[in-house]
Design a protein around this nucleic acid. Structure first.
Lengths: 195, 195
DNA sequence: ACAAAGTTAGTTAATATTAACAAACAAACA
DNA sequence: TGTTTGTTTGTTAATATTAACTAACTTTGT
């Protein structure tokens, strides 16, 4: 569990990342924004890496929660994938900084601990979606003539691309509709329509 | 045009980016690798940003070349998209550092000039692919019941995701086959099969 | 002889982190 | 009850390291 200050540090970090990018997340900026001195940060976190690890953990567990909810759900696989789509999207909308975090692998490249965590999160997400695709194919909802691996790459890649575009150009347009449209396109593409 | 030294600086930069990431591209590393002193670098480039701009320009023009080739080509649109897929992939294989560059938007976020260039490149690529999709739909080769914008997001997103996975996990596996399989999946999905 | 390309030896600004100490409060105890 | 002791959370000042970049001088090639 996090203390109030620890939570504040994490929240403020996400704010900073959101507004000026991960590069701007320095202890100095962090301390200034919170209104305490730099060394005070170290009363609550051993070092900067452990702050970042906490952020990634938060990210990981919020994703896990979403997947768990979908596993229990009685919906059909395609609908569950759609929920994950929307769920991720809601998360991004509520907390735009997560977008920066998700695309920050390159920055963590010199920190093995962080890179490992990122790889772990990506891998788990991939497998969760893939499991749903496989299930959808088994139940005849998704076209079984395609390798589930490639369908998963297409699904996740599309979502990421959408988010990236949103971050780079669109900026606060009709994002919810965009996601709906994108997913409905994907759905029609991969659905099993042997009528 | 670039002098020999300038070219060497660019090449070595790409080598460094490739092996230890963009974060590792410092003037010190660059000079050491080339075998000259740090200030000598400044005899050939005004500053670090201009080196990075040159790299992005190289990236941009090599992409442009590829698109130009495809425009002249007599192939059908889907085949041309496939060529672009393979072309990009060849580029990545020949020069893995480009992968790092392409995913480095987050790092350039505090450098408006660089960020603008990245946005420009992404935008042009997007529109080039989209034009091919539209043409494919007009010629009845691609299913016209889908918004070309979303199909383009799916196509580019998949390619990027594939590359990302390649960078993160697969590492020197059967990459050429993977690209072939991925594209053939996409092709089957979006093809117009009203037979 | 002169311009291009290199060197050595610096500068400035940032960075994460540590050392040493202080105020506020709580717990323990006489 | 009042004093001692410890803990938490903060401070200021300093640290080591690294970044990009510069000034002034030397070498090299034509």
């Amino acid at each position: 569990m996090l203390t109030d200050r620890q939570q504040e540090i994490v929240d403020t970090s996400l704010e900073i990342i959101s507004s000026i990018g991960i590069q701007g997340l320095t202890i100095k900026n962090l301390a200034k924004r919170i209104g305490i001195s730099e060394p005070a940060i170290y009363r609550h976190y051993e070092n900067k890496i452990s702050i970042l690890l906490t952020i990634l953990d938060y990210f990981k567990s919020s994703g896990e929660q979403m997947f768990r909810k979908q596993i229990k759900s009685e919906d059909r696989p395609l609908r569950r994938i759609e929920c994950i789509f929307e769920g991720h999207f809601d998360a991004f909308e509520r907390n735009p900084s997560l977008v920066s975090v998700i695309f920050s692998e390159e920055i963590f490249r010199n920190e093995p601990v962080l890179q490992a965590k990122i790889a772990e999160i990506m891998d788990r997400n991939f497998n969760a979606i893939k499991a749903l695709v496989v299930e959808g194919q088994a139940k005849g909802e998704i076209n079984p003539n395609f390798d589930s691996k490639y369908l998963t790459i297409i699904i996740i890649g599309s979502l990421r691309m959408m988010v990236k575009r949103w971050q780079m150009v669109d900026k606060s347009f009709n994002n919810r509709d965009e996601v709906k449209n994108l997913f409905s396109t994907i759905r029609k593409l991969i659905e099993n329509n042997n009528s």
